[in-house]
């Protein structure tokens, strides 16, 4: 069984309308049944927390979020490994849901990235039941759940990024390969196509992309494209490449116009 709905869906369509009566609606997204069963039992004792769905894959999580108004998603970190756009995608698809990621071990870059991309809490898999319940309640109330070590990491990353953004002399340094990959992204190519184009594997492209996101402080392809537009990143790259007489696609001489919706 891959998608296991335990309770009937709420009639509310706005995601918050019946929270007062229905309590906190939680989706458990975990590849391991033992964890889902355990968490379900923990929440079953709480009157104000209701598990509306259990899923074991990311695909099923998308389906459950579409079907069930949700307040909090408890997401196993392993489910989003290698899918760098997963959190922003989930946040975009379910803006009313708040995401808690359960990780087996914490490290600085992963923790900072998770918070940067929109999760409200990062907790260890070994978290105690009492603390997990408290975490769900706090996050449902709109708070962020973060331990002291993670606060230091996030603040440090924020300072570092702020210094980069406010100091025009400090530009993120991107390698030729990273810039080539960005160029492919803005042409709408998929990771597999990019891998073929530059002669590497899809996983290597994902690794490069993660690095690029980190350096530029963006979280998905759309943000990356907007960053390129605002900073004329690829234009500079093409100009530098042309100066070095490296064969690159020629640019037409059209005059830039502001971004507009039509």
């Amino acid at each position: 069984m891959t998608l296991d709905y335990r309770d009937p869906p709420s009639n509310s369509s706005d995601g918050h309308g019946d929270q007062a009566t229905a309590g906190i609606r939680v989706i458990l997204a975990d590849s391991q049944a033992i964890y889902r069963v355990g968490m379900k039992k923990v929440f079953a004792l709480e009157d104000d927390i209701r598990v509306v769905a259990q899923v074991e894959t990311l695909t099923n999580l998308y389906a459950a979020l579409e079907r069930y108004p949700t307040d909090v998603v408890l997401l196993e970190g392993q489910l989003i490994v290698g899918t760098i756009d997963a959190i922003p995608d989930l946040v975009r698809k379910a803006p009313n849901a708040k995401f808690i990621v359960q990780v087996t071990e914490t490290d600085e870059s992963n923790t900072v990235e998770l918070y940067r991309r929109g999760v409200r809490g990062v907790v260890p898999r070994s978290i105690s039941p009492d603390l997990l319940i408290k975490c769900v309640r706090k996050i449902s109330d709109g708070e962020t759940w973060i331990d002291n070590q993670s606060i230091s990491w996030v603040i440090e990353a924020y300072r570092s990024q702020a210094a980069t953004l406010t100091n025009p002399r400090v530009q993120p340094k991107l390698s030729k390969k990273e810039l080539a990959i960005i160029g492919c992204i803005t042409r709408g190519m998929r990771n597999k196509e990019i891998a073929y184009q530059i002669g590497t594997t899809e996983q290597v492209v994902k690794n490069y992309l993660r690095k690029v996101y980190d350096k530029l402080g963006v979280s998905d392809r759309l943000e990356l494209a907007l960053y390129c537009l605002h900073h004329e990143l690829l234009k500079k790259y093409v100009q530098e490449s042309e100066a070095e007489t490296v064969a690159m696609p020629s640019r037409n001489g059209s005059v830039g116009v502001p971004v507009s919706a039509k």
């Binding site: 234009k235 020629s250 507009s260």
Partner: peptide, 17 residues
């Protein structure tokens, strides 16, 4: 639904993105 046009001159691409 809407389309965003990013000029090639700013994007460094052959065609508008």
């Amino acid at each position: 639904s809407f389309n965003l046009s990013m000029p090639s001159a700013l994007m460094g691409t052959e065609a508008d993105v």
